[in-house]
Structures are given as C-alpha cells and as structure tokens.
Design a protein around this nucleic acid. Structure first.
Lengths: 196, 196
DNA sequence: CCCGTTTGTCAACAGCCATTGACTTCGTTC
DNA sequence: GAACGAAGTCAATGGCTGTTGACAAACGGG
C-alpha cells in the first residue's frame, strides 16, 4: 500500500555498509519524527523507509531515544554554523527567510517541524533543551558578545523560533506589500535585540 | 504514589450527576493533556483524577480523540487576556510572564501549553488555526490598530509564540540578573513591534 | 580456501493502553 | 413500590510497538 521503497530495484539491495545504513536510518528518522512527532513515529516504519531492519536501530543507536537524540543533533547541525554572519545583514536576512520563499524551503521546513515537535513534546523537551543550549544558545551568545550576552541570546532565539512557528502555521509564503511590511517589522524586531 | 485524588474524602462519592462528572473529566483532561500531550496522557489517569471510570469517557465523549477536541474547545473558550492591556505596560508584562515565575506558573501557562502541544496533532490543526486567528491574531490586530495592523499583528503574535516555545524548552524559570536582562531585552523586542 | 567478525534477518515476547460490552446500582416517574 | 432508564463499575480483549536474542549471510584477512 505505502509507496515506501517499492521500486527500489530489489536486485541491488545495497552492499553491506554499516555507515550507509546508519545514515539512511538517521535520514528516515528525521523525516518521520518531523512528520509525526516522537511518540507517533514508529521504529518499524523508520527502518522500512531506510530499507533496513528494526533490530539495527538497537544495535546502532541503543534504542528509540538514542536514535532521536542523534537525529536531533544531525538536524540542528554543528555549533559552528554561525560563522560568517555579519551583524548588519543578519536581521534582514533572517526576516526574509521567515517571510517564506515559495521555493527551496522543503528541507528547512522539515527541520523546523522536527524541532518544534521536539519542543512541544514533554518527552523530548529536556533533550532538546540540552542540544539547544550546546549548539545554539552558546554559539549565539559568543557571536553576540558584549553585556548580557546570555539573556540576549535567549531573546534572540525566542524571536527566531517565533518566526519559524508563525511560518509553519501560516503554511504559505507572503507576497506583495504585506510581505514587505512583514520583513520590515521582523527585521526591526531582530535588530532591537542584536544591537545591544 | 501519585497524589492524584488521594484525599478526596471517599465518604461522599458525589451524588450521581452526569453533567458534573463530565465537567470534572474535562477539567482533568485539560490538565493532563497540557502536562503530557495527547499521546502520553492516559485515559485511566484522567478518569481517576476526575474520580470517575474510564468507560464513561467513551459514553460521554466517544473516545480519546473526542475528549481531546472537547477539552481543546473548552480551553480555547477561556478568558480573553488582551482586555485591559495598555500599550505602555504590555511589553513588560508579557516579558515578565515569559521569564517565568518560580511560583504560580501553573494555571497561567497551562492553557498555552495545551494549545502548543495541540498544534502537533493533525486532527486538531484546523480547529487550532481558527482559534489562533480568532483569539490571537484578530484581537492583537485590533488592539494594535494603525497602519499595517495585519502584518504587525503577525509579527507580534510570532514573537509572542516564540517566547512561549522558548519557555517550554527552557523548562525552568529565570532568576537573578539574567532574569532582569532577559525581561529588558524581551520587552524591547516586543516594543519594537508594538510602536509601529 | 577457511574462519572470525561484522552486518543483516527473523520471530517472539512483554507491556501498555484504548476500547468494549455485560453487569450493578441509583434515581425517578407512574 | 415497581419498573424503566440513566449513571457508574468491572474485567477482558485486542492491537500496537519497543525490545531482545538467536540465527543466517556476507565480508575480509590469514
């Protein structure tokens, strides 16, 4: 019934490669967790989507929670992601991003859903908190510098998150005058935090 | 172990009253769903907290989903928080709320948590969309007034939600100097939107 | 070519939980 | 006060899902 991996020419079931299957499972996990949330995501389905067996999840990740943490880290990315941002363009760039681009946002949206779901689920919130602290708040704090960097980083993260959620709820991208107005306001809000 | 309804004098098991037990179950459901989310919330516990039996949930609400929807409606219909806010105090009030209060952060954030967690349940997405539009975006827009009210309302709602989520992830309330700094910055960010 | 190790597969288990229907008790009406 | 319906209780059942250990196949070095 499901169009999972129906047409994956069964003649070449992928040469045995632990790293590859591990990566495939991680990818599938990100998709499933994003779409369904932690509790509703089913290990069997994740494994199936990756073209692997459930038992391997235990072997490679220890269990469901381990898989989730690993997927979370993979989704958030490394702590050096902020490198190269400049203060001037930052606010408007983020704002434009959040207004929504009709194209090319598939992957980003998925990551968001993933993070949002993780945030709103009590079972995973502590895990997310840890990851955010290490890979988001810390780097942003350092990037901001100056006084009260920690608190400002918190606020910045909150505002950022807010735009992501709004974008997610809205569903479609903004257009025309409303889009311009939105970007202006959002950039102003972000700048208010970045500029001390 | 759990301090559910242990001390509800068992001598007076409540005179038979369908409406009352229904209401009690709804109240318990709101609490449990807010605290645990849809999936982790257990009907047995909800019934127990309401001092009723599980089977009645089926009879009165049709099932778990029905109970959830009903609880959501009930939560949405709560008091309107925007009434009486003035432009001057608004930002700081919200910011303080989001910093977290070591005490008394039960009732106030429960509804918000419930709504946020509900956002991840596909079956309630339309319901929630409507609620956000009617009870959040609409009032905020009217309250803001002036030019580009709609766009500004979007941004304001987004920032607000962002703080909610950040609070949810963070888990604990802020204290001391960081708390003060956070409130200041958050208020500034909100003000940047409110003041046209 | 052989053997140990890695990789992948299979089936069963065990716990949790919503659902369900039959049964009992209470309240009300005639 | 008898009978009917509503309110509440109880136990069992069935499905779902994470986990687990035993087994088979492939790989690679000696």
């Amino acid at each position: 019934m499901s169009p999972v991996a129906a047409l994956e020419r069964p003649a070449a079931p992928r040469r045995r490669d632990a790293a590859a299957t591990r990566a495939a499972m991680l990818e599938a996990a990100k998709r499933q967790f994003a779409a369904l949330g932690y509790d509703r995501a089913v290990l069997r389905d994740i494994a199936a989507e990756a073209g692997a067996d459930v038992a391997l999840i235990k072997r490679y990740f220890g269990g469901k929670e381990g898989l989730f943490v690993e997927a979370l880290k993979s989704a958030i990315g490394g702590p050096d992601r902020l490198r190269g941002w400049d203060r001037a363009g930052f606010a408007r760039e983020i704002a434009t991003l959040m207004a929504g681009d009709p194209h090319a946002h598939e992957e980003r949206t998925q990551t968001f859903q993933f993070l949002l779901r993780a945030a709103t689920s009590p079972s995973t919130a502590p895990l997310l908190n840890l990851a955010v602290q290490e890979r988001f708040l810390g780097p942003i704090r350092d990037w901001l510098g100056g006084e009260n960097a920690q608190a400002r980083a918190r606020v910045l993260a909150a505002v950022h998150i807010g735009f992501l959620v709004e974008r997610l709820i809205r569903g479609e991208a903004l257009v025309g005058a409303e889009r311009e107005a939105f970007i202006d306001r959002a950039a102003a809000a972000l700048d208010a935090v970045v500029q001390s």
